[in-house]
């Protein structure tokens, strides 16, 4: 109990004083997960929109692969990315092992299926009559895709938030490919794990508090997006 109180007290002082270790881990986590999510959205939204609108042979199989991807265990992704970016691996020339780039790649693989899958669902949930209405208004196929994506912007925002929420709290893959280097690839989750194993509970609590705050913010945005009214 003393340990907890002491840890919470130290956490508070670290948060108030913006402790450099805490700040570094937070900004690293935001940078890595932010860019991974942004890349997932940039590629996953068009892919998801296409999957949601098109009808072709093998679409169901592709969708179920995407759905499987939504539940990929981070350590499995970490393992694959590590093997790929080791110098002896096929992408060894990039020299990405123990870098943020490798972490972004791993987190991208974790977030992208979620963005693709949820975008496809969001686009499919739009009234098919609206497609007809847009055609009738003279929309080309590309224009239609753009409008439907914009129309599904709140569910897509939810998809992006789901992706971000998953990778910001992920540890397995980031630790395996990023190596938890202080001031560089040390992010909130890996720092919490290290501090816990070092017995530095104050720092761990402070980082955990920030992580919880981020997760809460993500869920707040998601909840807001889900409560919006739709036009007739």
């Amino acid at each position: 109990m003393d340990l907890i109180l002491q840890g919470l007290g130290e956490a508070a002082s670290r948060l108030v004083s913006l402790d450099p270790d805490v700040r570094e881990a937070t900004s690293a986590a935001l940078a890595v997960s932010g860019i991974a999510t942004a890349l997932s959205v940039a590629t996953g939204v068009p892919a998801g929109a296409w999957l949601g609108l098109s009808r072709f042979r093998g679409r169901k199989l592709l969708l179920s692969l995407v759905n499987t991807g939504m539940g990929l265990p981070p350590v499995v992704v970490g393992l694959f990315v590590a093997v790929l970016v080791w110098r002896s691996g096929p992408f060894g020339g990039l020299d990405w092992y123990c870098t943020r780039q490798a972490m972004v790649a791993a987190q991208y693989l974790l977030a992208a299926p979620t963005v693709v899958g949820l975008t496809a669902i969001a686009i499919q949930a739009i009234d098919p009559m609206l497609h007809l209405q847009l055609s009738a208004l003279g929309a080309t196929r590309i224009q239609m895709l753009g409008i439907l994506v914009r129309e599904a912007r709140l569910p897509i925002l939810t998809a992006a938030m789901a992706g971000f929420g998953a990778v910001i709290s992920e540890i397995g893959a980031s630790l395996m490919v990023g190596c938890n280097i202080k001031g560089d690839t040390r992010i909130l989750t890996t720092a919490i794990a290290l501090d816990t194993s070092k017995g530095e509970f104050g720092s761990a609590f402070a980082l955990a508090f920030i992580l919880l705050l981020l997760v809460f913010a993500v869920n707040a945005v998601t909840t807001w997006a889900q409560q919006r009214r739709r036009p007739l």
Partner: peptide, 17 residues
């Protein structure tokens, strides 16, 4: 929203350097 993502992307890339 797209503009926001592009901005985020650029910031994150810079932070990665």
């Amino acid at each position: 929203m797209i503009r926001a993502f592009v901005l985020l992307l650029i910031c994150a890339l810079v932070a990665c350097d």
